[in-house]
Lab assay of single mutants.
Amino acid sequence: MEVRTIKVFTTVDNINLHTQVVDMSMTYGQQFGPTYLDGADVTKIKPHNSHEGKTFYVLPNDDTLRVEAFEYYHTTDPSFLGRYMSALNHTKKWKYPQVNGLTSIKWADNNCYLATALLTLQQIELKFNPPALQDAYYRARAGEAANFCALILAYCNKTVGELGDVRETMSYLFQHANLDSCKRVLNVVCKTCGQQQTTLKGVEAVMYMGTLSYEQFKKGVQIPCTCGKQATKYLVQQESPFVMMSAPPAQYELKHGTFTCASEYTGNYQCGHYKHITSKETLYCIDGALLTKSSEYKGPITDVFYKENSYTTTIK
């Protein structure tokens, strides 16, 4: 009895394709271990004539594949690729409408935090270190965002349907971005203890939790000093293409032309909904596939993004 075979390709990165001759009487799992086709788990399936010449994702289970996976995804987590594939199996079914010149995501599976993050990423200057993220990001900007969303979920250790947080998501993504040249110098002034300067680099240099107003941050924000008295913390120097200011959701007025974009969060910790506000020729609110415009805006804002380049204080 002759062994019926077909020729397929296996890959971990969709760049390096490895030619395989597979036995049609055995499952993919018996031949390769966990195997995925377009995100779908085909591990328990036997090869079919229609699979001839198709590319299958496999887990990096030998040295060659491990090197290829690390170079593309910059992670050695053995569960990463499987999590990416199972997320992709959902995100490829989502709709990605162009809204006001940006790629958004039609609401499904509690994905409003991903839509808000995706919209924000198209408006701030950011370059990702893992080629996987950078490639998928370019495709997302062009309207094909399924891979990018699935990668975000995998890097953030999230599953489809789980509630997510924009600030946490951005923080994970910033860790995989090139923020080497970003720098922030802060000064804390206390009447009792004097003053202390701190220099922050990388992710810490672009994120701040405690106030939404970048102007206020430049002037000074009140913080408790270690001595128990009130101290003032203010920005001395900022070198970065953008800054992200966050605070627990509270009524906040966004003035046209003073910011790049913002995240609105309605609801409580267990259950809520994100919308995205962007400042173009007027203010726009993007909620999944829905767009509304207004000249002014007041609502429960939790993150505001500002364009920056270089700032030095005039406070002496």
Rank of each mutant, 00 (worst) to 15 (best):
4 R>C: 15
4 R>Y: 14
5 T>Q: 12
7 K>F: 12
9 F>K: 10
14 N>P: 04
16 N>M: 08
16 N>V: 04
19 T>E: 15
22 V>M: 11
23 D>A: 10
30 Q>H: 13
35 T>D: 03
35 T>Q: 05
39 G>V: 08
39 G>Q: 10
44 K>Y: 08
53 G>Y: 11
53 G>L: 13
56 F>N: 04
56 F>D: 05
58 V>M: 08
59 L>V: 15
59 L>Q: 07
60 P>W: 09
64 T>I: 14
71 E>M: 08
76 T>A: 15
78 P>L: 08
79 S>R: 12
79 S>I: 14
81 L>K: 06
84 Y>K: 04
88 L>K: 06
88 L>S: 03
90 H>L: 12
90 H>V: 12
91 T>L: 04
93 K>G: 10
95 K>P: 01
96 Y>H: 05
99 V>P: 00
100 N>A: 15
101 G>P: 03
102 L>W: 03
104 S>V: 04
105 I>P: 02
108 A>K: 08
110 N>V: 02
114 L>R: 05
117 A>F: 00
120 T>W: 05
124 I>G: 03
124 I>E: 04
124 I>K: 04
124 I>M: 06
130 P>H: 04
131 P>M: 04
133 L>I: 05
139 R>Q: 12
140 A>M: 13
146 A>H: 07
148 F>V: 04
148 F>A: 01
149 C>Q: 03
150 A>N: 04
152 I>C: 07
163 L>C: 13
166 V>E: 02
166 V>R: 01
167 R>H: 06
168 E>H: 15
170 M>T: 03
170 M>H: 04
171 S>D: 05
172 Y>R: 11
174 F>L: 11
177 A>R: 03
180 D>Q: 11
182 C>D: 04
184 R>G: 13
189 V>T: 11
191 K>E: 15
194 G>I: 01
196 Q>M: 12
200 L>I: 10
202 G>W: 00
205 A>W: 02
208 Y>L: 06
220 G>N: 01
222 Q>V: 09
224 P>I: 13
224 P>T: 15
226 T>P: 12
228 G>A: 03
228 G>D: 00
229 K>P: 03
231 A>C: 08
232 T>S: 07
233 K>V: 12
233 K>F: 08
236 V>A: 11
237 Q>I: 10
240 S>G: 06
241 P>K: 12
243 V>E: 03
247 A>N: 07
247 A>Y: 02
250 A>M: 08
256 H>M: 10
257 G>V: 01
258 T>E: 15
261 C>G: 02
261 C>T: 02
265 Y>P: 00
266 T>D: 12
268 N>D: 15
269 Y>R: 15
272 G>N: 01
275 K>R: 13
276 H>V: 02
277 I>L: 06
288 G>F: 03
295 S>T: 13
306 Y>D: 01
307 K>R: 12
311 Y>V: 08
314 T>N: 15
316 K>C: 15
